[in-house]
């Protein structure tokens, strides 16, 4: 299936940061997925904690609350032997008026090795990465990118289907506000999948067809013949802002139920980045269905983050050595 790569192959991923899926080559993605595949198997086989990041410091800097992504990075870092520090930004100096750049400079002075950042503003993570000497991983910036989510989605698909090239993947729901959608469109296109996006026009960004996806506003049509149905979370506040009229109407036309899922291929898989709104974008029975790989996505999340940390840390060593 996948070609196993040696653990000590840092040159195969020559980037210092992981900020976006846009511009990642198929080779770079494959290196990360192969590493993650090994990590996943290692964990499944009850493998013990490794020491790739022993003596390294990882800071989780989350300006936006998150449970699963933060826990996933923490778990990944600890499995690789890193010292993990979670910065609770809500109670930090940020609320006292410190700018993002000042925060970055302050943290940099503490000489961490890797910073994982989530921020509500698109572009904030890249801005921060320009002000620090360590590696930066984007754990979600506004509606822009969430690269490790796209990687874990790709790994989940590859393990379930054996390939990604040639598959038809439908991403459904609030595309407009979704970093998950943007990251997946980039990454899946690079890997040769055919990507569709399905949403009401009010939840599509402008010029959606230019993103590299086929656009549907009719979910029944959009799911026709799909291999993968990837649902997105709809945030409640979207209703107040009149993007969609009601939960009931949204579920009726854009929620994944058995009737709509029947339009996809019989062996189509259902995915969701979580946390799910049961009965809003996905019927409860589908979330728990045998075709749902939502739990696997969480599992692959840790493996993918281990792979990313490992790849970046190897590079970090070289970087420090050169300095």
């Amino acid at each position: 299936m996948t070609q196993k790569k040696s653990h000590s192959a840092p040159v195969l991923f020559p980037r210092r940061h992981l900020l976006t899926c846009e511009g990642l080559s198929a080779d770079e993605i494959t290196v990360l997925l192969d590493l993650a595949d090994q990590a996943a198997d290692h964990i499944r086989q009850g493998g013990r904690k490794r020491d790739v990041l022993a003596g390294r410091t990882l800071i989780n800097l989350f300006f936006e609350s998150s449970t699963r992504t933060q826990a996933s990075f923490e778990m990944a870092g600890k499995r690789l032997g890193a010292d993990v520090m979670n910065m609770n930004v809500a109670t930090s100096s940020v609320t006292k008026g410190e700018t993002l750049i000042d925060t970055a400079v302050t943290l940099n002075a503490m000489r961490p090795d890797i910073i994982v950042v989530r921020h509500h503003a698109a572009g904030a993570v890249e801005l921060l990465s320009q002000k620090v000497d360590c590696s930066v991983i984007n754990a979600g910036d506004g509606a822009h990118q969430h690269p490790t989510q796209a990687l874990l989605d790709a790994l989940t698909i590859r393990r379930a289907k054996g390939r990604i090239a040639g598959l038809t993947v439908a991403i459904c729901g609030d595309i407009l506000h979704s970093r998950v959608a943007r990251s997946n469109i980039n990454l899946l296109n690079t890997l040769g999948a055919r990507v569709r996006i399905i949403a009401p026009s009010t939840l599509l960004p402008s010029a959606p067809e230019r993103l590299g996806a086929e656009v549907f506003t009719d979910m029944w049509k959009g799911l026709e013949g799909c291999d993968i149905v990837m649902m997105l979370r709809l945030q409640r506040e979207r209703m107040d802002a009149s993007y969609v009229p009601s939960v009931r109407e949204f579920f009726h036309f854009f929620g994944l139920d058995h009737e709509k899922l029947a339009r996809a291929k019989p062996d189509a898989l259902v995915m969701h980045p979580g946390p799910m709104n049961r009965g809003v974008e996905i019927a409860s029975t589908i979330a728990d269905h045998s075709r749902s790989v939502i739990r696997e996505q969480v599992e692959m999340g840790v493996a993918v983050r281990m792979a990313v940390l490992e790849a970046l840390s190897a590079h970090l060593t070289r970087y420090e050595g050169a300095a």
């Binding site: 209703m239 009149s242 009229p245 009601s246 009931r248 109407e249 009726h252 036309f253």
Partner: peptide, 15 residues
């Protein structure tokens, strides 16, 4: 077209 004709929230146009 809006709930209660208030001009704020869209009504359930599809349904």
């Amino acid at each position: 077209m809006t709930k209660g004709l208030k001009g704020e929230e869209m009504s359930e146009i599809g349904l």
